[in-house]
Design a protein around this nucleic acid. Structure first.
Lengths: 336, 336
DNA sequence: CTGAAAGCGCTTACAG
DNA sequence: CTGAAAGCGCTTACAG
């Protein structure tokens, strides 16, 4: 097997054509002022030599790496992977590569270590599924790099965000469970200090009214699934709303191990509709934000910031799209 | 909002400490020869100034970008996202960032455009879920860059691969369906020219024997789901083996629309056990390769190639791990 | 329309 | 143990 072939650089292409590196560079970047003849010569030489431009080198000089960083805490959740898939394809189409970062689930925030790691790659923009930690907000803003918070409200941080109406989603879940006859409800959230989680909770609580007792609000980062399940069984809770579908699945499993069957002994509503992303049968009743449009909205904001198009007040996603409840088998009419 | 703060470079740190950029660089990279005093001064200055090294610049000079490219065709499939999540975390722990590339599902191969895009980022290594296209194999090998084919056999390309025993998995599926009483079987593959797909098919065919008629072997890239479902119904097929879980889910849906219920009118086996990755209830019977160990094996090979550790003949994944069949509700004993 | 020089922010030899 | 110079592969002014 032949060893690492000599790397072909602009200089080689220049030598091969008898032109200067400057001219070759100009042709490749389609800058004005060169003859068709020169263009052909360059194109030909690049093909012959198998020239591939070094994007890192060009980034260093030009100040733009044509790279976008995506930050998340858990690529396993299809909500993130589905969105990341769409985003990276759109970025690619626009000449940007995607570099991914995760937070090791240390916290639901972009902390200092993480942002430093991201910035060391000099991306042209950062799209984060996580909110910035208190002490990184100023740092990020001062860096001047476009930062989009995806799926969360950016205003508290003075940043751009692309978010959906989470309270509305929570309300849908609450109304649905009530309308199906469930009367003793619970909410299983993720982190007690994450806004999305609280928004869904508040919407749900508002709709649920007396049916949701304060002692039936849980956060999986504080109470483990088994403890939650035990409490639900003990208190004869009959309707669950979970922060996302994965949490719902885990609860279904935990309750099954206690002899309770989904859609028979209790009703349950999730969030995200990952079943559809995976083309699975509709089993779980869930809230669907329209993830494809959501991702496209996020990409649009990012590209808008990158190209400095004037940020004319287009209506944000939140105001133009509305979540819907998709019914599965997990919330049949209760009793009668 | 303050505008882009002046970027802090090594030069600034040098000026601030009264040292040369060289010395500062040496301290930051922990090269030998500097006093504790100098080290403290540098550390202090970096903190004060908020210095973040430019990894692209260092990569340009040093020849190593500390970047690994991961190539896939569909991040939505949890098999890929789960694996990518693990891989990127392991790479991160070892000082490498991950840059992702997808093929736009143009083909199941790494084609010329794709590899050029990847190489332009000068990654230290490439881990691909896709096999290289015929005409890119030579190019990739000549580039000298470590290339690991994940989930596929690398030997036909003279490359390193990390693969599982796919025929064995296919056999498990076939034996299971037979043992449950299904007698008229079908295989739903992905691409007819992808080795993994064929390996599973061959293992399955071997176990199925006469129960698998040649006309009941399909590839979803050639025949659409509805056409497949129609044929299955017409021929009263009672047992399905699908290339992966997602294909299985789509088939279940297509058959349901034709009035056939999974686990009642027919049995079905998938591949990958994505249910477990998503912590979902065990519904589908499926083949599980042990994706966590699989991902770790892939990372190990990649890191091994990067650090040039001698490639002592450790047993490859295929020879040390064996897939298992995980039973769900989709393959109950038939009839009696 | 094309070229020679400078420089992006680092690290790598090489001096001292 | 530390520093001055050169250079990684490009693009950006600036000349001509």
């Amino acid at each position: 097997m032949s060893q690492a072939k000599k790397k072909i650089t602009l200089k080689d292409v220049a030598a091969h054509t008898g032109l200067s590196v400057n001219t070759v560079s100009r042709v490749l970047n389609k800058k004005p002022y060169y003859t068709k003849e020169v263009e052909d010569k360059v194109t030909q030489a690049c093909r012959e030599l198998g020239y591939i431009a070094d994007r890192n080198a060009s980034g260093l000089r030009s100040g733009s790496t044509r790279t976008i960083a995506i930050v998340f805490d858990d690529l396993v959740n299809p909500f993130y992977s589905f969105t990341t898939d769409i985003l990276s394809r759109i970025f690619e189409e626009n000449g940007y590569n995607t570099i991914i970062f995760s937070n090791n689930a240390r916290s639901p925030y972009v902390d200092n270590d993480l942002i430093r790691s991201v910035l060391s790659r000099k991306p042209d923009g950062i799209l984060s599924f996580l909110e910035p930690a208190e002490d990184t907000v100023g740092f990020i803003r001062e860096s001047g790099i476009p930062f989009v918070i995806f799926g969360r409200d950016g205003t508290p941080y003075g940043m751009r965000g692309v978010d959906a109406d989470e309270e509305f989603g929570g309300r849908l879940a609450g109304e649905h469970l009530l309308s199906r006859g469930y009367r003793n409800l619970a909410y299983i959230g993720s982190w007690h200090d994450v806004k999305v989680c609280l928004d869904r909770q508040h919407g749900f609580a508002e709709a649920a009214g007396d049916a949701l007792d304060g002692s039936h609000i849980f956060y999986i980062r504080e109470t483990d699934f088994d403890a939650i399940a035990d409490k639900l069984v003990a208190d004869k809770v009959d309707g669950l709303f979970c922060f996302n579908d994965i949490i719902a699945f885990v609860m279904i499993d935990a309750l099954e191990r206690r002899g309770l069957r989904m859609g028979e002994d209790y009703g349950i509503v999730g969030y995200d509709n990952i079943q559809q992303m995976l083309r699975m049968p509709r089993m779980l009743t869930t809230i669907d934000v329209g993830v494809t449009e959501f991702a496209h909205a996020g990409a649009a904001v990012m590209l808008e910031m990158l190209t400095d198009e004037d940020l004319t007040p287009r209506l944000p996603f939140k105001d133009t799209h509305v979540s819907v409840l998709v019914e599965g088998k997990s919330t049949p009419r209760k009793g009668w």
